[in-house]
């Protein structure tokens, strides 16, 4: 699991690559929590473009960050082109909380970060 963090305005973009499961989720969660506070992020984009595997641990991770970001009045969305990942995301109900975009630019625009 590798994670790259980037700020665009007040939007934190977290680009995840590799496999996101229960084993890796704890590390990712800690990195995101730190980044959200240290960078004063208001919105967040999960870029899953280079994620090769995710199970429901990833869903828990995204819902946890959604609760945090929305508690400070921000928005969260997802970038994913993978049919397999999108199926998991849709069946979990996460798409009722955050939209899925094809590109980070579209995602950042949607949360008002640019």
């Amino acid at each position: 699991m590798d994670i790259k963090l980037q700020m665009k305005g007040r939007t934190l973009i977290a680009a995840l690559s590799g496999e996101l499961d229960h084993h890796s989720a704890k590390t990712v969660k800690d990195m995101l929590e730190t980044a959200i506070v240290n960078k004063s992020a208001q919105n967040m984009v999960f870029d899953l473009t280079n994620l090769t595997f995710m199970d429901s641990s990833g869903i828990g991770l995204m819902i946890g960050r959604y609760k945090l970001i929305t508690s400070i009045g921000g928005k969260v969305c997802i970038v994913s082109k993978s049919k397999t990942l999108n199926r998991l995301i849709s069946m979990s109900g996460v798409t009722k909380l955050m939209d899925i975009y094809q590109s980070t630019d579209d995602a950042v625009k949607s949360v008002g970060g640019m």
């Binding site: 969660k29 429901s56 641990s57 869903i59 828990g60 991770l61 819902i63 069946m91 979990s92």
Partner: peptide, 10 residues
């Protein structure tokens, strides 16, 4: 533990 509770559903 921030589990989604979706394991069996998946």
């Amino acid at each position: 533990m921030e589990r989604s509770g979706m394991g069996f559903t998946v």
